Simulated assay, not measured.
Amino acid sequence: MTARRNIIGIGGSAGGLPAVIDLLKHFEPARPAIVLLVLHRVNETGHLVDILRRSTSLRVCEPDDGEPLRDNCLYIAPPDEHLLLGEAHLHLRRGPRENNFRPAIDPMFRSLAVFAGARATGVILSGYLDDGASGARAIVAAGGHVMVQDPASAASPDMPRAAISAVGEPENIAPPAALGRALSRAVGARAGPDGTVSEAVKLELMVAGLERASMTTEDRLGELSPYNCPDCNGVLWQIEDGPLVRFRCHTGHAYSSASLDARQEEMLERSLYDSLRSLREKARLLRDMAGRDSASAGRLCRRADDYDRDGDHVEAMILARQKRAA
């Protein structure tokens, strides 16, 4: 039987919802298709299913773990779970966050590479940073195709630009409506030969699916780096992925260079505020103690003044960082 292109994975982040709505309004395939969607979102976006149902004739649902694949369905990744394609079914897994997100686009794309091969088409829409770029490379290597929203039409062009840089020449770069029409034409087209899915891609998919994560696994993926994981403080392995440099710890947290930079920045800011709070609290406690112990009041107040001066230095650092970021 001739293999046909019928599996589509769509990923988006900031600005991705309006883009996917526009895409779906123009997605009218003549042949059956199965669509997986990952949007970086929070639990409060519970009306997403209802919103998307108004934009497409596809059956829209948040699947259960192990749900069989059905034609003409749009499966939305639930909050805080990776959505992964399997053999004729779907997996939901609370595996480690990737690129600071769960659900993340990279694991979903890798699952398309492993289980759909040349039948797969990955689509990257508007979003910050670069989730999906590594997974897009995996799809192309497996014989599949990648389409990308034109960065000029994206509210947040980072993800489209990163995907274009990662794969070199996507099948299509266009605004969302044009992507919808291009996908409609692609569905049912003869798939080319499957490419080779590397063992590294399969290992990373297993980590996302909670099937394997250990120091031995990471040692097979890359080299030890001098950096620690911002989420668990474990050592990070550095993974060379074509033009991409990525990192993964032994518990499975994964980062691109850009997402590691963003997470480190977040943790550094939190650390500075924690330090400021601790210093101010320490000075306050010492002054309270001085008020109850006249014999030691002078010494305790001098110590409090030292902590306040340290707090002033930390506060100046925070203000300087805010000024640079403005």
Rank of each mutant, 00 (worst) to 15 (best):
R5Q: 10
G11Y: 06
V20H: 09
F27P: 05
P29G: 00
P32E: 03
I34N: 11
L36Y: 03
V38Q: 09
V42H: 14
T45Q: 15
G46N: 15
L52F: 02
T56M: 03
E67H: 07
L69A: 06
R70P: 00
C73N: 11
L74S: 00
Y75P: 03
I76C: 04
P78T: 04
G86Q: 13
E87W: 12
H89S: 13
L90Y: 12
F101D: 11
P103R: 06
A104Q: 09
F109C: 00
L112K: 06
A116M: 11
V123K: 06
I124Q: 04
S126D: 09
D130V: 02
G132M: 00
A133C: 09
S134I: 01
R137F: 05
H145Y: 10
S153V: 04
A155M: 15
P157E: 02
D158S: 15
A163D: 04
A178T: 04
G180L: 03
A182P: 00
L183Q: 05
V187S: 07
A189S: 13
T196W: 01
E199G: 14
V201M: 04
S214A: 11
T216H: 15
L221K: 03
P226L: 09
P226I: 11
Y227D: 12
Y227E: 12
N228T: 15
V235P: 15
L236M: 09
I239P: 02
L244K: 02
F247K: 00
T251S: 13
A254C: 14
S257K: 11
S257M: 12
E265W: 12
L272E: 08
Y273S: 08
S275Q: 13
S294R: 09
A295F: 04
G298E: 11
R309H: 14
A316C: 00
A320I: 01
